[in-house]
Amino acid sequence: MSDCKIVEVKNVSFKYEKEWAVEHVNFSLDKGQFVALIGPNGSGKSTLVKLILGLIKPTVGSIQVFNELIKRFNNWQEIGYISQKSNSFNAGFPASVLEVVKSGLVSRLGMFRFLKREHTQKALEALKVVEMEEFARSSIGELSGGQLQRVFIARALISAPSLLILDEPTVGIDAKHVTDFYDLLGRLNKKTGITLLMITHDIDTITKHATHIACMNKTISFHGTSDEYNQYNEQDLKPSYEHMDQQLIRNNYVEVTS
């Protein structure tokens, strides 16, 4: 594995009780890439992300993160994560924006080390990156969906991770703010060199921002640059959702009948 590989997934399959959610996935993520992971619902995208994060263990295969097997990996400050659940968090939670952003330092500080005044400064800097510093003292429940996502990015960025993983971060956000959000991610990727892996359904918009596209339907059916993906599109060979849906139906059919 070369040094520039951030994530390497080798022949990974995962089974939820009876059903295979992910099958024979080979996938890698190089340093500095902005990869959009697309695919229909139930295609195993979130499961793959959870496997990469070590939240669940693969049934078959191996995963390496920063050149280390995921089960031995403990350098969690290198990874920032914004989950799907971030969109449906408890809006009545009594926390200020600053407190939420500072909570992103938990992995970097570790146990028995305390948050200090300098960390407030760091949190303000992270909020400045996402253009949210004026909301630092606001309650988290007062923010809109788009503003919340920016705060969660600031929370992820405060520990200066090398990899940021986002699971459908734009659900429930209007089209204008989605474009602003992707612009922000694109700028971060170019400016800081942070590696991004994002699950999304906004195929048309994301191809303008991501450097690479990976299509998934239990397995990775396409993985290439955005230009290559658009070329496929022009040649009408793009692995569309309809195509992937049919594949999903076929897979299920084979499993049910076999």
Binding site: L53, L55, N74, W76, I79, Y81, S83, K85, S86, F89, N90, F93, A95, V100, S103, G104, V106, S107, G110, R155
Partner: peptide, 11 residues
């Protein structure tokens, strides 16, 4: 309390 999944990923 705020985000259990984030806590797990933070180690």
């Amino acid at each position: 309390s705020f985000d259990e999944e984030h806590a797990t990923v933070s180690g």
